[in-house]
Amino acid sequence: MIKLENITKDYSNAGETVKVLKGITFTIKDGEFVAIMGPSGSGKSTLMHVLGALDTPTGGRYFLDEHDVSSYSQKDLAHIRKDKIGFVFQAFNLLPRATVLRNVALPLIYARVPKEERDKRAREALLSTGLSEDRFEHLSNQLSGGQMQRVAIARALVTNPSLILADEPTGNLDTQTGELVLETFKKLNAKGHTIILITHERDVAEHAQRIIHIRDGLVVKEEVSKN
Protein backbone atom coordinates (compact mmCIF):
# COMPACT_ATOMS: atom_id res chain seq x y z
CA MET A 1 0.00 0.00 0.00
CA ILE A 2 1.28 3.42 -0.98
CA LYS A 3 0.07 6.56 0.73
CA LEU A 4 1.18 10.10 -0.09
CA GLU A 5 0.13 12.88 2.30
CA ASN A 6 0.58 16.43 1.12
CA ILE A 7 3.99 15.76 -0.48
CA THR A 8 5.98 18.88 -1.42
CA LYS A 9 9.38 19.18 -3.06
CA ASP A 10 11.40 22.37 -3.48
CA TYR A 11 14.58 22.83 -5.42
CA SER A 12 16.81 25.79 -4.92
CA ASN A 13 18.65 26.88 -7.98
CA ALA A 14 21.02 29.86 -7.88
CA GLY A 15 19.38 31.17 -4.72
CA GLU A 16 15.89 30.85 -6.16
CA THR A 17 13.53 28.27 -4.72
CA VAL A 18 11.37 26.41 -7.18
CA LYS A 19 8.38 24.53 -5.83
CA VAL A 20 8.06 21.47 -8.05
CA LEU A 21 5.56 19.48 -5.99
CA LYS A 22 3.04 21.60 -4.14
CA GLY A 23 1.12 19.14 -1.99
CA ILE A 24 0.31 15.80 -3.53
CA THR A 25 -2.00 13.36 -1.80
CA PHE A 26 -3.16 9.99 -3.08
CA THR A 27 -3.31 6.33 -2.13
CA ILE A 28 -2.51 3.28 -4.24
CA LYS A 29 -3.66 -0.11 -2.98
CA ASP A 30 -1.69 -3.31 -3.38
CA GLY A 31 -2.28 -4.96 -6.73
CA GLU A 32 -3.37 -1.78 -8.49
CA PHE A 33 -2.10 -0.65 -11.90
CA VAL A 34 -2.02 3.14 -11.85
CA ALA A 35 -0.79 5.64 -14.42
CA ILE A 36 0.55 9.03 -13.37
CA MET A 37 0.08 11.32 -16.29
CA GLY A 38 1.11 14.87 -16.95
CA PRO A 39 2.88 17.08 -19.48
CA SER A 40 6.58 17.81 -19.18
CA GLY A 41 7.27 20.23 -16.34
CA SER A 42 4.29 18.98 -14.37
CA GLY A 43 6.50 17.47 -11.70
CA LYS A 44 5.86 13.84 -12.58
CA SER A 45 9.57 12.98 -12.76
CA THR A 46 10.14 14.49 -9.32
CA LEU A 47 7.15 12.56 -8.04
CA MET A 48 8.63 9.40 -9.54
CA HIS A 49 11.89 10.05 -7.66
CA VAL A 50 10.01 10.42 -4.40
CA LEU A 51 7.89 7.31 -5.06
CA GLY A 52 11.01 5.38 -6.02
CA ALA A 53 12.80 6.37 -2.79
CA LEU A 54 15.54 7.99 -4.87
CA ASP A 55 14.85 11.29 -3.14
CA THR A 56 13.09 12.49 0.00
CA PRO A 57 10.28 15.07 -0.15
CA THR A 58 10.71 18.55 1.35
CA GLY A 59 7.41 18.23 3.20
CA GLY A 60 4.56 15.77 3.72
CA ARG A 61 4.66 12.07 4.39
CA TYR A 62 5.16 9.06 2.17
CA PHE A 63 4.19 5.62 3.47
CA LEU A 64 5.33 2.53 1.61
CA ASP A 65 3.99 -0.64 3.27
CA GLU A 66 3.66 1.30 6.55
CA HIS A 67 7.26 2.54 6.37
CA ASP A 68 7.49 6.34 6.60
CA VAL A 69 10.04 6.70 3.81
CA SER A 70 9.91 10.53 3.81
CA SER A 71 12.35 10.83 6.69
CA TYR A 72 14.80 8.10 5.67
CA SER A 73 18.56 8.50 5.35
CA GLN A 74 20.37 7.71 2.07
CA LYS A 75 21.41 4.33 3.42
CA ASP A 76 17.87 3.41 4.48
CA LEU A 77 16.56 4.61 1.12
CA ALA A 78 18.98 2.23 -0.59
CA HIS A 79 17.55 -0.61 1.52
CA ILE A 80 13.97 0.35 0.65
CA ARG A 81 14.85 0.45 -3.07
CA LYS A 82 16.50 -2.94 -2.82
CA ASP A 83 13.62 -4.61 -1.00
CA LYS A 84 10.48 -2.84 -2.14
CA ILE A 85 10.91 -1.16 -5.51
CA GLY A 86 11.60 -2.30 -9.05
CA PHE A 87 12.46 0.33 -11.66
CA VAL A 88 11.83 0.29 -15.40
CA PHE A 89 13.44 3.21 -17.24
CA GLN A 90 12.75 4.78 -20.60
CA ALA A 91 16.35 4.10 -21.71
CA PHE A 92 16.31 0.52 -20.31
CA ASN A 93 19.65 1.11 -18.48
CA LEU A 94 20.98 -2.40 -18.97
CA LEU A 95 24.66 -3.23 -18.54
CA PRO A 96 25.62 -3.46 -22.23
CA ARG A 97 28.33 -6.12 -22.12
CA ALA A 98 26.63 -8.38 -19.62
CA THR A 99 24.35 -11.27 -20.51
CA VAL A 100 20.59 -11.02 -20.17
CA LEU A 101 20.63 -13.33 -17.17
CA ARG A 102 23.34 -11.35 -15.45
CA ASN A 103 21.44 -8.12 -15.96
CA VAL A 104 18.29 -9.55 -14.45
CA ALA A 105 20.14 -11.12 -11.54
CA LEU A 106 21.96 -7.87 -10.70
CA PRO A 107 19.55 -6.64 -7.97
CA LEU A 108 19.82 -10.04 -6.27
CA ILE A 109 23.58 -9.59 -5.99
CA TYR A 110 22.99 -6.58 -3.77
CA ALA A 111 20.38 -8.56 -1.85
CA ARG A 112 23.07 -11.21 -1.18
CA VAL A 113 21.11 -14.02 -2.78
CA PRO A 114 23.32 -17.07 -3.58
CA LYS A 115 24.21 -17.66 -7.22
CA GLU A 116 22.02 -20.70 -8.03
CA GLU A 117 19.01 -19.06 -6.44
CA ARG A 118 19.74 -15.89 -8.44
CA ASP A 119 19.84 -17.78 -11.72
CA LYS A 120 16.64 -19.60 -10.97
CA ARG A 121 14.75 -16.44 -10.03
CA ALA A 122 16.18 -14.51 -12.99
CA ARG A 123 14.95 -17.24 -15.37
CA GLU A 124 11.50 -17.20 -13.81
CA ALA A 125 11.30 -13.42 -14.07
CA LEU A 126 12.42 -13.48 -17.70
CA LEU A 127 9.91 -16.18 -18.61
CA SER A 128 7.09 -14.17 -17.03
CA THR A 129 7.92 -11.23 -19.32
CA GLY A 130 7.65 -13.54 -22.32
CA LEU A 131 11.26 -13.32 -23.52
CA SER A 132 12.21 -16.53 -25.26
CA GLU A 133 14.72 -18.70 -23.45
CA ASP A 134 17.28 -18.80 -26.29
CA ARG A 135 18.00 -15.10 -25.61
CA PHE A 136 19.00 -15.58 -21.96
CA GLU A 137 22.70 -15.97 -22.64
CA HIS A 138 22.87 -13.13 -25.21
CA LEU A 139 24.62 -9.92 -24.36
CA SER A 140 22.03 -7.26 -23.68
CA ASN A 141 23.32 -4.95 -26.43
CA GLN A 142 22.53 -7.66 -29.00
CA LEU A 143 18.80 -7.39 -28.31
CA SER A 144 16.08 -5.30 -29.95
CA GLY A 145 14.49 -2.40 -28.04
CA GLY A 146 11.40 -4.42 -27.13
CA GLN A 147 13.50 -7.31 -25.89
CA MET A 148 15.70 -4.94 -23.87
CA GLN A 149 12.69 -3.43 -22.16
CA ARG A 150 11.39 -6.88 -21.27
CA VAL A 151 14.77 -7.69 -19.75
CA ALA A 152 14.52 -4.44 -17.77
CA ILE A 153 11.03 -5.43 -16.59
CA ALA A 154 12.33 -8.84 -15.53
CA ARG A 155 15.09 -7.08 -13.60
CA ALA A 156 12.46 -4.95 -11.84
CA LEU A 157 10.45 -8.06 -11.01
CA VAL A 158 13.17 -10.34 -9.82
CA THR A 159 13.29 -9.13 -6.21
CA ASN A 160 9.50 -9.49 -5.99
CA PRO A 161 9.07 -5.83 -4.99
CA SER A 162 6.01 -4.19 -3.48
CA LEU A 163 5.98 -1.70 -6.31
CA ILE A 164 7.11 -1.65 -9.94
CA LEU A 165 7.80 1.90 -11.06
CA ALA A 166 7.92 2.38 -14.83
CA ASP A 167 9.12 5.76 -16.09
CA GLU A 168 8.02 6.26 -19.71
CA PRO A 169 8.75 2.60 -20.47
CA THR A 170 7.54 2.89 -24.07
CA GLY A 171 9.26 6.20 -24.81
CA ASN A 172 12.09 4.63 -26.81
CA LEU A 173 9.94 2.01 -28.55
CA ASP A 174 7.77 2.01 -31.65
CA THR A 175 4.00 1.81 -31.08
CA GLN A 176 3.72 -1.90 -31.80
CA THR A 177 6.57 -2.91 -29.51
CA GLY A 178 5.34 -0.44 -26.88
CA GLU A 179 1.99 -2.16 -26.99
CA LEU A 180 3.66 -5.52 -26.28
CA VAL A 181 5.51 -4.07 -23.32
CA LEU A 182 2.31 -2.59 -21.91
CA GLU A 183 0.59 -5.96 -22.34
CA THR A 184 3.44 -7.45 -20.29
CA PHE A 185 2.70 -5.00 -17.49
CA LYS A 186 -0.95 -5.92 -17.63
CA LYS A 187 -0.16 -9.61 -17.31
CA LEU A 188 2.11 -8.93 -14.35
CA ASN A 189 -0.58 -6.86 -12.73
CA ALA A 190 -3.02 -9.71 -13.24
CA LYS A 191 -0.60 -11.86 -11.24
CA GLY A 192 -0.84 -9.38 -8.36
CA HIS A 193 2.06 -6.94 -8.91
CA THR A 194 1.47 -3.29 -8.04
CA ILE A 195 2.51 -1.12 -10.98
CA ILE A 196 2.86 2.64 -11.35
CA LEU A 197 3.30 3.86 -14.89
CA ILE A 198 4.55 7.38 -15.44
CA THR A 199 3.83 8.82 -18.86
CA HIS A 200 2.81 11.91 -20.77
CA GLU A 201 0.85 9.92 -23.36
CA ARG A 202 -2.87 9.31 -22.91
CA ASP A 203 -2.75 6.13 -25.08
CA VAL A 204 -0.15 4.65 -22.77
CA ALA A 205 -1.84 5.76 -19.56
CA GLU A 206 -5.09 4.12 -20.63
CA HIS A 207 -3.57 0.69 -20.22
CA ALA A 208 -3.73 1.25 -16.45
CA GLN A 209 -6.82 0.80 -14.31
CA ARG A 210 -6.66 4.31 -12.88
CA ILE A 211 -5.09 7.54 -14.11
CA ILE A 212 -3.83 10.30 -11.78
CA HIS A 213 -3.34 13.58 -13.65
CA ILE A 214 -0.58 15.88 -12.46
CA ARG A 215 -0.16 19.49 -13.52
CA ASP A 216 2.05 22.19 -11.99
CA GLY A 217 2.91 20.02 -9.03
CA LEU A 218 -0.63 19.19 -8.03
CA VAL A 219 -3.08 16.36 -8.64
CA VAL A 220 -5.67 17.86 -10.92
CA LYS A 221 -7.83 14.84 -11.71
CA GLU A 222 -8.19 11.16 -10.96
CA GLU A 223 -10.13 8.93 -13.33
CA VAL A 224 -10.81 5.28 -13.82
CA SER A 225 -9.48 4.12 -17.17
CA LYS A 226 -12.00 3.20 -19.87
CA ASN A 227 -10.29 -0.13 -20.52
Partner: peptide, 16 residues
Protein backbone atom coordinates in the same frame (compact mmCIF):
# COMPACT_ATOMS: atom_id res chain seq x y z
CA UNK B 1 27.80 7.32 -14.44
CA UNK B 2 24.54 5.83 -15.69
CA UNK B 3 25.59 2.38 -14.58
CA UNK B 4 26.34 3.76 -11.12
CA UNK B 5 22.93 5.44 -11.10
CA UNK B 6 21.26 2.18 -12.06
CA UNK B 7 23.15 0.19 -9.45
CA UNK B 8 22.10 2.68 -6.82
CA UNK B 9 18.49 2.60 -8.02
CA UNK B 10 18.34 -1.17 -7.65
CA UNK B 11 19.64 -1.04 -4.12
CA UNK B 12 23.44 -0.73 -4.11
CA UNK B 13 24.67 1.14 -1.07
CA UNK B 14 27.54 3.62 -1.12
CA UNK B 15 29.84 0.99 0.31
CA UNK B 16 28.92 -1.47 -2.47
Amino acid sequence: TREIGLRKAIGAEESD
